[in-house]
Design a protein around this nucleic acid. Structure first.
Ligand SMILES: [Mn+2]
Ligand SMILES: [Mn+2]
Ligand SMILES: [Zn+2]
Ligand SMILES: [Zn+2]
Lengths: 141, 141
DNA sequence: AATATAAATGCAAATGATTTGCAAAAAGGA
DNA sequence: TCCTTTTTGCAAATCATTTGCATTTATATT
C-alpha cells in the first residue's frame, strides 16, 4: 500500500497522518519483514528521539485494525508487525537462531476443504501458518 | 501418553512425580483441549488448595520441554497447554467468541514440498497451523 | 493568519502474564 | 533414619502492553 493510499484510508476514518505515523510506516515499508514494537521504537527513535512507546503501540494497533499492517504472534509471545503490501497474504519461515523471517508463498488454507470445517460447524475468518527452524547461517554454527 | 510412561520419562531425567504434577497432568488428561496456566491453576486448586502459580508455570514449562505437553501461543498472546496424547500431532480451529478449540486432522506441513524450504536454505523443526473463526454457537448470537 | 475542535502525543503509572531468588519442605535412595 | 537433590510456596521482579490524563498538534473554519 502506498503512503498516499494509507493517508486516504486514515483520513476517511477521521485519523490524521502525523509525523510519528509517517515514521512508523517508513520503517515498516523499508524492510518488509515482521518487527516487534521494540524494534520499531528503536528505529523511529533515531529520527525522532522524543517518540514514546505508547505512541508506537497505539499506532501499530490502530493500523492493524485498519488492515494497514498485519499483527502476528510468533512463537515468542511478543507481537510482530509487518506492512501489508501485497494484495495476497503470505506466511513465514522463522529462524529460531537469529529470528530472521522469510516469506513463503504456500498457503495451506487454500488446500483445506471446506467440508471439514462445515462438519465442525465452524465459520473461518483467518488462519495462521508458520514454519520454525534454522536458517543456513545459524545451521552452520 | 499414560501416567506410567510419563513417570518413567520424568524419572529418567532425575525428576520426581509429585502430587502437584500428578494433579496438573490429571487436568490436562481429563479434557484434552488447550488450557491456559490460569485454567490449570483454578482446576488444580479445587483438589489442592495450597497450590501456587509458580508451581503451575514451572511444571507446564518443564513438561513441554520434555514433550509431555504442547505449549502453544494462540492468538491472544496467552500460552495454552495441551497434553500430548496421540502419536500424531494435530492442529486446531479456535473460536474467537467463546475460545473453544477443536482438533483438525489436516496438517499443511505434509503438503509443502521440501524443495521450497531447501531453496530458502532452511531446515525446519516445527510448524504451526491454526484456523480462527466462530463456532456455531457463537455464530448464532 | 487567528481560532476552534477533535485527535494524537508524551509521560507516568497500571496491568497481566510469566519468571525468579530464596528458604523451607518433600521425595527417594543409601 | 539420614543425606542429597529436587520441588515447592511465597514474595518480589520482569517484560510486554495498556491506560488516564494534561498538553500539544493537525486540520477545518472563520
Ligand atoms: Mn512477511
Ligand atoms: Mn488439541
Ligand atoms: Zn494463508
Ligand atoms: Zn502439522
Amino acid at each position: 500500500m502506498s503512503l498516499e493510499k494509507i493517508e486516504v484510508l486514515l483520513r476517511e476514518k477521521g485519523y490524521k497522518l502525523t509525523e510519528q505515523r509517517r515514521l512508523i510506516l517508513a520503517i515498516l515499508q523499508s524492510n518488509s519483514v515482521p518487527h516487534t514494537a521494540q524494534e520499531v521504537y528503536d528505529l523511529v527513535k533515531l529520527a525522532y528521539s522524543n517518540i514514546n512507546f505508547s505512541t508506537i503501540y497505539r499506532n501499530l494497533e490502530l493500523m492493524s485494525e485498519l488492515g494497514i499492517v498485519d499483527k502476528m504472534n510468533l512463537k515468542s509471545g511478543v507481537s510482530h508487525f509487518e506492512i501489508n503490501d501485497r494484495e495476497e497474504h503470505h506466511h513465514h519461515v522463522i529462524c529460531k537462531g537469529c529470528g530472521e523471517t522469510k516469506a513463503i508463498d504456500f498457503c495451506p488454507y487454500k488446500m483445506i476443504n471446506n467440508e471439514e470445517l462445515d462438519k465442525l460447524g465452524f465459520s473461518a475468518t483467518e488462519h495462521k501458518f508458520e514454519i520454525y527452524g534454522f536458517c543456513n547461517k545459524c545451521n552452520a554454527k
